[in-house]
Every structure is written in structure tokens, then in C-alpha cells.
């Protein structure tokens, strides 16, 4: 699971190692990546929204 999260975070950042990609595509199930991707996107939204709301006061 931690690996999936790491991969999704790497995707958000836009950098990934070839070796890790090979692993992701041989072992991981795609659905895991999609679910984690969407969840982390929601986390991202919440975090940025919190920042924006705090700054806006």
C-alpha cells in the first residue's frame, strides 16, 4: 500500500524512476492506483483549500 501511495505522490510531483514503474506495472492492480489517486487528490484539495481559507481569513 505504501508503495502505491509513493507512486501516486511521485505522479503528482511528475517524476518517477523507471525501475519503480516496472514494479508498479507488474505487481500493482490498476484499481488501487486509481482509488489512491482520487483519495490523494481529495487530500490535496482539502489541504490547499485549508491554506486558502486561512489566508483569506
Amino acid at each position: 500500500m505504501w508503495n502505491v501511495i509513493k507512486s501516486v505522490l511521485a505522479a503528482f510531483f511528475g517524476v518517477q524512476k523507471e525501475r519503480r514503474r516496472q514494479e508498479d506495472f507488474t505487481h500493482g492492480e490498476p484499481i488501487k492506483f486509481i482509488v489512491v489517486g482520487i483519495l490523494l487528490a481529495i487530500v490535496l484539495v482539502v489541504v490547499i483549500a485549508m491554506i486558502a481559507l486561512t489566508v483569506a481569513g
Binding site: S7, A10, A11, F12, V15, Q16, R21, A41
Partner: peptide, 19 residues
């Protein structure tokens, strides 16, 4: 250069493009 990064970034751009 950075094929893996390209694939990953493209996928995440797809999600982030809704935001």
C-alpha cells in the same frame, strides 16, 4: 529521457486538470 516520469505526470495532470 524520463519516460516513466512522462507517463506518471500525464496521469496525474488528468486528475489535477479538474481542479
Amino acid at each position: 529521457f524520463g519516460y516513466a516520469s512522462m507517463v506518471y505526470a500525464t496521469a496525474s495532470i488528468a486528475i489535477l486538470s479538474f481542479l
